[in-house]
C-alpha cells in the first residue's frame, strides 16, 4: 500500500450494506473511515456483523450496496493482480484460523512470507522472532492439528503479523486464550501498531480494549455506533 500521510484514510467504507440470501441483512448502510496507523476495536454480539465487515475488508466478501475504498481504490473493481497484491499487504487472523493442519507451525507462518517470495533467511528470522514473542518456540515443528485451540490461534496471529502488514485484521484474536497468552498477543499487536500497522480488532473481550484510548466501534444488527474515542 502507498506510503502517505499517517492520518490520511486507509479505508473508507461508504454506505455499505451486505445482504445474504434469502434476505438476511448482515450490514445495513454503514459508513466508517479508518485512518492509516490507527488501532480500532470492533465490538458487538455474535452475529452482529463484525466478521462480515472484516471479510469485506480482506476481499472474501463484497458489498451488496455501497463502496469500500482501500488506499483510494474501489475494492470491488480490483484486477486479479491488484487483488493478489493487496492481499499480500493485509494480515488476517481469522476466527476459524485457516491453518494447514498437516503443516508445521513454522510452515504455516512462513507461507505468508513465501507467497511474497521473501528471502528464506529473512523468513526464518522473522518466524523465529514471532514464535518467541508468542511463546510457541517449542512447537516450531509441530503440525498445527496437534496444537490446542489457543496455540492454533497464536499461530494464526503470527502468520497475520509475519509480513509486518500495512493493515491487520484480527477476528477475536484472544477468544481461546488464557490471561497470560492474551497479554502476549496484545503486546505483539501493540508492537505492530507502534511500527505503523493499522489494526482493526473484532472482539468480545472487554478487557483488551477498555482504557486503551483507541477508538471503539460497536456494531449491532448490522449498524455501527461509535461508542468511545
Amino acid at each position: 500500500m502507498n506510503d502517505t500521510h499517517p492520518s490520511s484514510p486507509l479505508i473508507d467504507i461508504v454506505k455499505v450494506s451486505k445482504v445474504y440470501p434469502p434476505n438476511i441483512m448482515a450490514l445495513d448502510n454503514i459508513s466508517l473511515t479508518i485512518n492509516r496507523g490507527e488501532m480500532l476495536f470492533l465490538t458487538g454480539a455474535s452475529g452482529a456483523g463484525k466478521s462480515t465487515l472484516l471479510k469485506m475488508l480482506c476481499f472474501l466478501e463484497y458489498p451488496t450496496k455501497g463502496l469500500i475504498e482501500q488506499d483510494g481504490k474501489d475494492v470491488s473493481r480490483l484486477s486479479a493482480i491488484n487483488l493478489q497484491f493487496m492481499r499480500q499487504q493485509i494480515g488476517v487472523a481469522y476466527q476459524d484460523f485457516k491453518l494447514l493442519p498437516k503443516h508445521t507451525v513454522y510452515q504455516n507462518i512462513a507461507l505468508a512470507m513465501e507467497v511474497r517470495y521473501e528471502n528464506p533467511v529473512k523468513i526464518k528470522k522473522r518466524v523465529m522472532a514471532l514464535l518467541n514473542d508468542l511463546a510457541l518456540s517449542d512447537k516450531i515443528h509441530t503440525p498445527t492439528n496437534k496444537l490446542s485451540r489457543g496455540e492454533q490461534q497464536r499461530v494464526c496471529l503470527a502468520r497475520a503479523c509475519a509480513n509486518k502488514p500495512a493493515l491487520l485484521l484480527a477476528d477475536e484474536p484472544t477468544g481461546n486464550l488464557d490471561a497470560d497468552s492474551t497479554a502476549k498477543v496484545m503486546k505483539l499487536l501493540a508492537k505492530l501498531h507502534e511500527a505503523g500497522t493499522t489494526l482493526l480488532i473484532a472482539t468480545h473481550d472487554e478487557k483488551i480494549y477498555q482504557n486503551t484510548g483507541h477508538r471503539i466501534i460497536n456494531i449491532a444488527n448490522g449498524k455501527l455506533q461509535e461508542s468511545q474515542s
Partner: peptide, 16 residues
Amino acid sequence: QEELEILRFLGATDSY
C-alpha cells in the same frame, strides 16, 4: 484445495 484456498487468502499470485 484447502491449501490453495489459503494461499489465495494470503495473496499468492497465479504464477506462484
